[in-house]
């Protein structure tokens, strides 16, 4: 998928033009034919205005019908998203180098916390939903969506789903932090969210329960499930038999949320920063509670990351989903790069 060799081969194809080299060499005073290349330019503000119009037009997208109530183990589902019952509840930072001395694994330390069901029921449980026709069967694999959580305030999406095959699931990969992924040679085929974590409490040899985390754009939400008929060709296989299903967005509205500085939104499940400069660095985020305790969401200096997913959008917003539920009724402040934003 991504390696140093492929990176070199790719950017080896990027060259300065012969004309540019000629112009550079002609800059020397002894050259008589000097001229400087200057491309046509337009005002940057015009570009920004155009982008804003596109974004605003996209927000017209309406909620999709088809959401139905979850008839399952809601406590178990929320524990898999926000609790600490699984095998990957916490871990130290993992830094590994490959045989060429290049960084091959770089996972910050993380720590999950026990789910407080009272808080979960008060702030989150009623927002869970699933969809009609929530099962896809392909090539012996049965994929089932059990629950979806969509937070309209931040765009964060969580999906609880499973894949089952009585004859065995074949190959898949598992990171030290519980992140599960497909390998070259995997017969399973799925695309859900941005990161997927194995729910080790409920999974068996023939059935995996997976927690997926993503961030919705203005487009429709979807997932794809299927089978790879050409597993020998791995991730570049062309022979997929898969089905795309549209995930409805609940019209339940947004969860209770806090707003700071007009551009930071904190919900019980995620945080969103809007209108950030592209060069802005989010190096540390801490949520402080009224009882004096703290949730270190991430910290570059201590190499800690207690998020389940993060999106740094080229549209100027950044969203991180939490690995625990934040009781927004008890937040006293958030601290971003050392700057304190108190709850009013």
């Amino acid at each position: 998928m991504f390696d140093e060799k492929k990176m070199k081969a790719t950017f080896d194809q990027v060259h300065a033009s012969d004309a540019l080299l000629t112009e550079v060499l002609e800059m020397m005073p002894n050259n008589t034919n000097q001229h400087i290349h200057k491309p046509h330019r337009i005002a940057r503000t015009l570009l920004i205005a155009a982008v804003l119009l596109c974004v605003l037009a996209g927000t017209v997208t309406a909620a999709v019908s088809g959401a139905v109530r979850v008839n399952g183990d809601i406590a178990g589902i929320m524990d898999s998203w926000f609790g600490s019952s699984g095998d990957y509840a916490s871990g130290s930072a993992i830094v590994k180098y490959d045989e060429w001395g290049k960084l091959s694994m770089n996972i910050p330390a993380w720590s999950r916390e026990s789910l407080d069901m009272d808080v979960a029921e008060r702030l989150v449980a009623s927002y869970l939903y699933t969809l009609e026709g929530n099962t896809v069967t392909k090539g012996g694999f049965t994929y089932t969506i059990h629950a979806i959580l969509y937070d309209s305030n931040t765009g964060a999406v969580m999906v609880c789903w499973s894949v089952e095959n009585p004859n065995g699931l074949g190959e898949y990969g598992l990171s030290p932090n519980g992140e599960v992924f497909l390998l070259e040679g995997s017969a399973m085929r799925w695309v859900v969210g941005g990161r997927n974590y194995l729910d080790t409490v409920n999974s068996t040899d023939t059935k995996l329960y997976i927690s997926s985390f993503g961030v919705a754009s203005d487009d429709e939400l979807w997932a794809r499930f299927g089978v790879c008929n050409d597993p020998e060709n791995g991730k570049y296989a062309k022979e997929f038999d898969e089905q795309k299903i549209i995930l409805p967005r609940s019209d339940r509205g947004g969860m209770k949320a806090l707003t700071f500085n007009d551009n930071i939104t904190v919900s019980p499940v995620a945080i969103r920063f809007d209108a950030l400069e592209e060069s802005a660095d989010l190096e540390e985020l801490i949520i402080a509670y009224t009882d004096g305790s703290e949730y270190v969401v991430f910290s570059d200096s201590t190499f800690v990351d207690n998020t389940t997913y993060g999106v740094d959008s080229s549209q100027g917003y950044v969203t991180y989903s939490f690995n625990r539920i934040v009781d927004v009724d008890k937040v006293s402040a958030i601290v971003v790069n050392g700057e304190v934003y108190a709850v009013n």
């Binding site: 991504f2 990161r195 200096s301």
Partner: peptide
């Protein structure tokens, strides 16, 4: 800071992984 570089590399790899997965899809 060097830890910031390490973090950015970590996040960049994760983003690339997601983007290349989406492209492949």
């Amino acid at each position: 800071p060097t830890p910031t570089v390490a973090t950015r590399l970590h996040r960049a790899r994760a983003l690339l992984k997601t983007k290349l997965q989406e492209v492949n899809d």
